[in-house]
Design a protein around this nucleic acid. Structure first.
Length: 433
RNA sequence: GCGGGCGUCGCCAAGUGGUUAAGGCAGCGGCUUGUGGUGCCGCCAUACGGGGGUUCGAAUCCCCUCGCUCGCCCCA
């Protein structure tokens, strides 16, 4: 196949798709606005080192999924595989945290070199929230609530929230040694994947999907048992807050996220309707990251929603009720040089007055143009031919009733504007409206 | 990186060794001259993802390759 086509895993969003994306973006903006979040936009390209230091070199994302290359100045560059590291970098670079805690949101494409499958592309889009400089357990609940409420507001059901606490750095290294010791004693019962991970990233063995490994793990020591008293207490308060918000959740002691920077609260929102890639939203607290990237110790929590997955759910749930494409209200037809120019001008006048107008740009016969008018979904047509130009009138035709009247252009415009005068585009109105 | 499924016109889709690759939708042209939605007629893949091979003969069999897709891994 030598046809030009998009790169593997890089997906075009066609006009009939973009409407639903715009709806999601609008809902998110509204939600974030009400929550007092400000938008931040960072470059798609960052120094490779940012992700190596931020996400952790033993993670799959950094180890084998990054789009990395050297630019012409021999700089090591990487297309961002996630948003948090960039946001933290930007906050530090511009001293945002010196002004106090930051409540931020972002959206945009991320890149991971993986094998595409349902709900997973190489370029995908995330919508994320980062609350920098907040340590209070209520901030965990607030962050989760923002995500939960956004998904709910969009009409997505069948969602499950799972949470766990990974403790602080101390708890984790303590648990890590306990777990490694336990795993080593059973090394020969583990699958090869898991065996390799004992030394590289033992915690990740916990959410292995290998059934035999899982069976064995049922008896493994739990992270929760290694948490310090204060970590446990903290987690307890997060749960209380969620209870108070009446956000249902399940404790999942095996939930371990794939990025190294997470501490304390980790969570995922999943849907059973997504196939293998069930996570719509994932996030957690990262109290050590900011310091690790050169800032002073600062607590923070954040999450990201996978927009492709969200759109998949929306299409399954509510999209059929939507009319993504806005049909024109008026279709303008003309024949003959003078008429064509007048049509061009009248279409513009109508648009300036707030009507959705489609102008036929062909010189085809009236029958042809009328046929297109009909298919466009417009309910009114404006016809101008040589005869009309001579008489100084236009034909205003009701395509539904098949009635028409000849009248001066100003009156026809006035008639249409009175009917469709709403200013501004109306992306989701029904074509028949 | 590893497995499974698939790959015929813009879309859907027949066709599983024999000289014409169905059909539907969309598109284009026409059916009295400047009036649509239905109807009727016509046009629309020397071509079956690409490359080799088997055969007298292949879209149909074999091999390789590319792509899509689902799953593993991982994650949003």
């Amino acid at each position: 196949m030598d046809k030009l086509q998009s790169l593997r895993g890089m997906v075009d969003l066609l006009p009939e798709q973009t409407a639903i994306w715009q709806q999601v973006e609008a809902a998110a903006r509204s939600q974030f606005h009400r929550a007092g979040l400000a938008e931040i936009r960072t470059p798609l390209l960052e120094a490779t080192e940012l992700f190596a230091r931020g996400i952790g070199t033993s993670t799959d994302v950094v180890g084998k999924e990054m789009y990395s290359f050297e630019d012409r100045g021999q700089r090591h560059c990487t297309l961002r595989p996630e948003g948090t590291a960039s946001v933290v970098r930007a906050a530090l670079q511009h001293g945002l945290l010196n002004k106090g805690p930051q409540r931020l949101w972002y959206t945009g494409p991320m890149f991971r070199y993986e094998r595409p499958q349902a709900g997973r592309q190489r370029q995908f889009h995330q919508l994320g929230v980062e609350l920098l400089g907040f340590a209070d357990p209520r901030s965990d609940a607030e962050a989760i609530a923002i995500a939960w409420d956004l998904l709910t507001a969009l009409g997505i059901g069948n969602l499950a929230l799972e949470i766990n606490s990974l403790g602080d750095a101390c708890d984790r290294s303590h648990y890590r040694s306990v777990l490694v010791e336990w795993l080593e004693a059973r090394r020969d019962q583990l699958d090869p994947e898991a065996q390799g991970r004992i030394s590289t990233n033992p915690l990740r063995i916990l959410d292995s999907k290998n059934p035999e490994t899982q069976a064995l793990l049922a008896a493994a020591p739990l992270l929760g048992d290694c948490l310090s008293a204060s970590s446990q207490q903290r987690f307890e308060r997060v749960r209380q807050a969620l209870d108070r918000l009446e956000i249902p959740y399940q404790l999942n002691p095996r939930l371990v996220r794939g990025l190294d920077y997470y501490t304390h609260t980790a969570f995922e929102i999943t849907s059973s309707e997504l196939g293998a890639q069930a996570t719509v939203c994932g996030g957690g607290r990262y109290d050590g990251l900011i310091e690790q990237l050169g800032g002073s110790p600062t607590a923070a929590i954040g999450w990201a929603i996978g927009l492709e997955r969200l759109v998949l759910l929306l299409q399954a749930a509510v999209a059929p009720a939507m009319h993504p494409l806005a049909a024109a209200q008026v279709y303008v037809i003309s024949r003959g040089e003078a008429a064509e120019l007048q049509a061009l001008a009248l279409a513009r006048t109508l648009r300036q007055a707030g009507c959705r107008v489609e102008l036929d740009l062909t010189a085809a016969a009236f029958a042809k143009q009328l046929k297109r008018a009909d298919r466009s979904g417009a309910s009114w047509a404006l016809l101008i031919g040589e005869g009309e130009i001579e008489q100084g009138v236009v034909i205003l035709k009701d395509l539904r009733l098949s009635t028409e009247q000849r009248l001066p252009p100003e009156l026809a415009i006035g008639e249409l504007v009175a009917r469709f005068c709403d200013a501004g585009p109306q992306p989701f109105s029904s074509p028949t409206a």
